[in-house]
Amino acid sequence: MDFVNLLFIILTSGLPCSLLALGIFITYRLLDFADLTAEGSFLIGGVVCITIIKNGGNAFLATVIAILAGGMCGLITGLLHTKLKIPKLLSGIITMTASASIAMLIMGSTVETMFTNVVTLSYTQDTIYSLFFVGGVWNQVIEAGIMLVIVLVVLFLLYFFFGTEYGMAIRATGMNPQMSRAQGINTDLSTIFAVSLSNALIGLAGAMFCQDLRSVDVKTASGFLVIGLASIIIGETIFGKKTFKNWIISVSLGAIIYFVIVNFAIRVGFPTEMKNLLYAVLIVIALCMPFIKDYFKKLFAKKKEGGLESVNN
């Protein structure tokens, strides 16, 4: 029973981060654009969603608007870079900084603090998860199920989109912008489109996370960029990226693995002051897996060959 609980805890924590990782993946890997807007669009997605539900709006509508809001953040970053020629990194930072102020405006507060000025939902206000609840232990199954459905839908859409003519044009833009332009691709437009799409996904992730937490405050998004990047790298290292289908699944699974690590640390009872250090160590171990595997393979191969190999070396 405890294992089942743990499984659902991992899934409900990890699945919103799968979307976050996929969003960051689109800009960071496909478009070769280190986009720092992520925490901004994550926050805006969460703030917009919770504020709408708190004021009586429908949870589905709130989530859809959160996606659009995230896309807007991406649009701004894209425009800053392509039209105003601001460097990629800086464009992301500008949007992220501005979104902190906009978030405060939407929530109606001026001060950033962690444990006050939190916007929370009341018991009667439903999130997209609780809309389907039947009570008891099934709740967490339903919540995980809804998250899983959303992630799968996004994966399908991404797979098909990046196989279309325009999707491939976006990938080409990321891999070789000069050649892409020579092949008739409007790289400004494809960059803006991809950055908007990426941040729309991140906005969705923010909405999903905040509906799981049923609250949001100005500092909610801090730390998620690192989680997203870690998920991408862990996923790629462990599950590989041979084909595009393989790649996006790896990235999504990477987020789940990250939370396996986090929950392992919690269950083992690691002292709370040291937990960040533990995450770092475990992530490094996960990343070194291929090297460790290789090393042991070589070690066994050497032993098998006997003395000759070591003599030659």
Partner: peptide, 30 residues
């Protein structure tokens, strides 16, 4: 440790493992 992600995951674990829980501050309690 001021991480929302940890707050969420820890809350889930605490609720699953304990007979009663205490939240300090609005964010943790919610």
């Amino acid at each position: 440790g001021s991480s929302s992600s940890d707050l969420n995951t820890l809350a889930k674990n605490l609720v699953a493992n304990n007979d009663l829980t205490l939240g300090i501050g609005t964010g943790a309690s919610v």
